[in-house]
């Protein structure tokens, strides 16, 4: 069944929607049948400056050029048979800070948890 879904996603990790994060989003999108479009929104609901305003969730370059930083909100729109599930997974990924913080803190501080 084709369906459309949309949801606001907040970027909470320090590095923003950076290369590795965008890579994970792309891999996620490839796992689903639905298409994903990300749209940058600012506080007042309008589009904020700097970079593209919409990005294809299957393109790392596109997502990077959104320049989505910590604290930014994105409007995620999915269309396809598993649109809702895709957005749920995306939200979870964003709330897990794109699994990236661990990498970053490891490399900056040498031994992470010894």
């Amino acid at each position: 069944m084709e369906s459309k879904a949309r949801r606001k996603i907040r970027i909470i990790n320090r590095a923003g929607l950076h290369a590795r994060a965008a890579t994970l989003v792309r891999r996620l999108v490839l796992d689903y049948q639905s298409r994903l479009v990300l749209r940058k929104i600012s506080e007042d609901g309008s589009s904020s400056g700097g970079g593209f305003e919409t990005a294809d969730g299957s393109s790392v370059l596109d997502m990077l050029s959104l320049c989505a930083l910590q604290g930014d909100e994105l409007l995620a729109e999915a269309e396809g048979p598993d649109a809702e599930e895709l957005l749920q997974a995306l939200e979870s990924l964003a709330s897990r800070k794109f699994l990236e913080e661990e990498f970053a803190s490891d490399s900056e501080h040498g031994s992470p948890a010894a």
Partner: peptide, 21 residues
Amino acid sequence: RYADVFRRLPNPNFAERVNDV
């Protein structure tokens, strides 16, 4: 086209990606 967009990004970490492009 991507490089031009990246170069103008306000955040230096993102703008640095222009080199990757």
